[in-house]
Amino acid sequence: MSLKTWKELPIGCVVSDPGSASEYHTGSWRSQRPTWDNAKCIKCGICYIYCPEGCVQQTEDGFFQADLDYCKGCGICAHECWPRAIKMEEE
């Protein structure tokens, strides 16, 4: 992405592209990743609720997965998963 010149800046530097921070992929910060064992998953959604990145998504069949473009590997989901369906694995 090329940097804007002063003439190209929006007036007052207003950012009118909501959610555009998602261009930046924080997944590269990660040293470990969460993996789900769907046999243990009760689809409660705790992992979705407690994700600071908002990157845990529910799939069509009701299970969950992390968007690894953004997952920073904090491990909250694995730590809070009551049925212990999530494990953190080294990258």
């Binding site: 940097l3 804007k4 010149t5 002063w6 003439k7 800046l9 007036i11 007052g12 530097c13 207003v14 950012v15 009118s16 909501p18």
Partner: peptide, 27 residues
């Protein structure tokens, strides 16, 4: 030029580092 209203969400007063600060001052 822009308004704080949910009809069209904008961010005002964003954080800018050295890559943009000079251009912003010039503007």
């Amino acid at each position: 030029h822009a308004t704080l209203h949910p009809a069209k969400p904008v961010t005002m007063g964003a954080f800018a580092m050295s890559d943009y600060f000079t251009e912003i001052m010039k503007a």
